[in-house]
């Protein structure tokens, strides 16, 4: 049962990583790409870590895996804020779709 849950979490995590890459390829500007990477990839990592923690040998080993998540989140939050700030300072305007009749 736990084995199945763990495998499911790994697959869901892989799906979120794929969505992050897809967003990086398909979104039009650096700001929207940051959204894709900061949100989807981090959730993917969280699912993978949770999946592996379920089958870890001991409670301490499981907590060690889960400890990686807040560190990766802090890194993403700081780096994506810094990149967005830098992009704005460089004068990169956000992408807008051409207005057609809606």
């Amino acid at each position: 049962m736990i084995e199945w849950l763990s495998m499911g979490l790994l697959l869901v995590g892989a799906g979120f990583f794929f969505a992050g890459t897809l967003g990086l390829l398909r979104f039009p500007d650096v700001y929207s790409r940051l959204h894709a990477l900061a949100k989807a990839d981090n959730l993917g990592l969280g699912c993978v870590l949770a999946g592996l923690a379920l089958t870890a040998d001991s409670l301490a080993a499981a907590l060690k895996l889960l400890l990686i998540w807040p560190l990766a989140l802090a890194a993403s939050a700081a780096v994506s804020f810094a990149i967005a700030r830098r992009a704005q300072a460089l004068g990169i305007a956000p992408w807008r779709r051409e207005e057609r009749q809606e």
């Binding site: 990086l24 650096v30 790409r33 940051l34 990477l37 900061a38 990839d41 981090n42 993917g44 990592l45 990766a72 890194a75 993403s76 780096v79 994506s80 990149i83 830098r86 992009a87 460089l90 990169i92």
Partner: peptide, 12 residues
């Protein structure tokens, strides 16, 4: 700024 995204990718 797009190239700086590589730093994010390695982290996660």
């Amino acid at each position: 700024a797009d190239r700086m995204l590589m730093a994010l990718l390695f982290g996660t």
